[in-house]
Every structure is written in C-alpha cells, then in structure tokens.
C-alpha cells in the first residue's frame, strides 16, 4: 500500500483521533448536539488541520525544537481566525449555527497533537494525507455521535432547515442525551463499536 494511503486510512480507523487516540473530546461532546453544526465543524477542522499540517511540515527544518509549540500555536490560531472571519463574512447562516465553536478549534488537541506528533517529522504530502485522514475520522465520529444524540435526544434530525428524520409522536425524548452524561454514554458505545470493527479487520488481515 502506498505510504500516504496508509496514513490517510489510519486516521479514519486504527488511529482515529476520537475513538482511538481520544484527543479533542471536550469540543466533541459540546458540539455533537446537532448534526448540522457538526458537519460544518468537521469541515472547519479538516481545513485547519490540513493547512497547519502542510505549513508545519513545509517549514519543519526551520522551526527550532525549543520553540516549536509556540510557533505551532500561532500558526493554528491564525488559520482558525481566518476560518472564523471568512465564515462570518461569507456564510453568516452557518456561522450563526456554529458560533463559539469555531474559535475553540484553536484549543482542540487534535490539531496541535498532529502538528507535534506527525507533521513535524514528516513530508508535506504525508502530512496533508494525515490531516485529511484525521479530519475525516474526526468528522465521521462527530457527525455519527451528533446524529444519535439529536435523533434520540430531541426526537428529530434537522439539516438545513428541513427535518430529515423524525421519531414517532409518542416518543418522549430523554433530555439527558443532550447533556454531557448522555454524550459520554453514547460515546462509550461508539468506542466499543469501532474497537470491534478494528479488531475484526485486524484478525481478517492476520488470517
């Protein structure tokens, strides 16, 4: 398998930032109450992750080891602010949905974690592949979690102003799913499920 393809796939499966590495969880639990918000959050994270990974990999030989973290943070914060301002200026309805979550990408450990753990030691193309894989892995789990929480927690799933799925009328949504305890419980099930998936594909490969 080509190296970049493996890096990309690992981000989605055996190195998934949320279910395996378990970083960036606080933002995930907060954002995953609505599918729509989660989708755009995922897009924003993918953009920032790919851009910062690429830039850091490009200049990795010039960034001195001792001050790498401050430099990473400045780069990441700049990209996040650019996304923030552009969304506000060109997509105000989307920005209205996301609000405070976009600036909070700065403190999302996934981005700094990948800058430090991957982009600083790898080539530009591999880092871009890693950013895409990690970003998509993050988005998939985030949207999945949001889908379950919104469907069972509020009784329906809204996307772009239209209700795409609705529970039967007699269904009384438990509020706990919208709160953090519910997020933890569902997230636990998602971790168990992905672990089972990863294990199964590992044994298949072995056989």
């Amino acid at each position: 398998m080509k190296a970049w393809l493996k890096v990309f796939k690992d981000g989605l499966s055996i190195e998934n930032p949320l279910t395996v590495l378990m970083i960036g969880l606080c933002a995930t639990l907060a954002v995953s109450t609505q599918v729509q918000g989660s989708v755009f959050m995922g897009i924003a994270v993918i953009f920032v992750l790919v851009m910062s990974n690429a830039l850091i990999a490009m200049f990795r030989k010039l960034i001195p080891n001792e001050v790498r973290i401050p430099i990473f943070i400045v780069i990441i914060a700049s990209f996040v602010t650019v996304v923030d301002l552009f969304m506000k200026a060109f997509f105000p309805p989307i920005y209205a949905v996301l609000g405070i979550w976009i600036p909070l990408i700065v403190v999302n450990c996934i981005i700094l974690g990948r800058a430090e753990g991957f982009a600083y030691h790898n080539t530009v193309w591999l880092s871009v592949a890693d950013g895409l894989g990690m970003g998509l892995g993050y988005t998939t789990v985030l949207v999945g979690l949001a889908f379950i929480r919104e469907l069972f927690g509020s009784g329906k799933v809204d996307l772009f102003g239209a209700t795409i799925l609705r529970m039967p009328g007699a269904y009384e949504p438990p509020t706990i799913l919208m709160l953090f305890p519910g997020a933890f419980i569902i997230f636990g099930f998602i971790i168990a499920f992905t672990r089972w998936l990863n294990q199964r594909s590992a044994t298949r490969k072995g056989a």
């Binding site: 001050v67 430099i71 602010t81 060109f90």
Partner: peptide, 24 residues
C-alpha cells in the same frame, strides 16, 4: 524564528480582517 512567525501571522490576519470586516 518566533518573531518571523508572529509577523507573518499578524500580517495575514490583518489582510483577512480588512477584507472581511466591512462585509461582517
């Protein structure tokens, strides 16, 4: 290195801001 990074970051943010501020 830190100084150069910050200057470039500040410049690009200023550019983005001046484009988007009137729209916002």
């Amino acid at each position: 290195s830190v100084l150069v990074t910050c200057v470039i970051a500040a410049a690009s943010l200023a550019a983005t801001y001046s484009v988007t501020a009137p729209l916002i």
